[in-house]
């Protein structure tokens, strides 16, 4: 089958890869580019474990074709920390023990970052609504929400 050539930027670095024309961005990230941070929870847009930023916008990588990201800027969870320095959202998730199995965590980190980049001082309600598309089977959400509010406070300084 004819493969499709895609040139894009991933976490600030130019990348080039071949894909099946109907493969998803999630497949390309995980299987071709070996960036396994984004997880496949449902492959139908329901769980948010595959959340990435596409040109700064929060999307489900399972609902984007790899071929669509030609010339775009993709940010996955691997691009959130600065070298060995965790992002405050990541640090606070750890401090609040806001993860158990961790499958939802990469998606939560990316989604929370998208929120705080737009709205540095969200209310608890705004955080809960923003994360409606990120399911967690383990934590009961409360610790996640506290961690994000705490990270927002720290980022505001």
């Amino acid at each position: 089958m004819a493969k499709h050539l895609v040139q894009t930027r991933l976490n600030g670095e130019p990348v080039e890869f071949l894909c099946d024309p109907h493969a998803t961005l999630l497949d390309a990230l995980r299987n071709t580019l070996q960036r396994t941070g984004a997880k496949e929870g449902c492959a139908s847009g329901d769980c948010g474990a595959c959340s990435v930023l596409l040109d700064g916008r929060l999307v489900c990588a399972c609902l984007v074709l790899a071929a669509e990201v030609e010339g775009c800027e993709v940010t996955s969870v691997e691009g959130v920390a600065q070298a060995a320095q965790l992002h405050p959202i990541q640090q606070k998730l750890l401090e609040h023990a806001a993860l158990q199995c961790g499958v939802c965590t990469p998606g939560i980190v990316v989604a929370a970052k998208a929120l705080l980049d737009r709205n540095p001082d969200p209310s608890e309600r705004e955080v809960r609504y923003w994360l409606a598309g990120n399911l967690c089977r383990c934590t009961g959400y409360d610790k996640i929400i506290r961690a994000i509010l705490d990270a927002a406070a720290e980022l505001r300084g």
Binding site: G45, G48, S51, L54, R57, L58, V59, C60, L63, V64, A111, A114, L115, W130, A132, G133, N134
Partner: peptide
């Protein structure tokens, strides 16, 4: 429509 992620598309 859906979530933030879904509305992104």
């Amino acid at each position: 429509i859906g979530s933030e992620q879904i509305q992104g598309r």
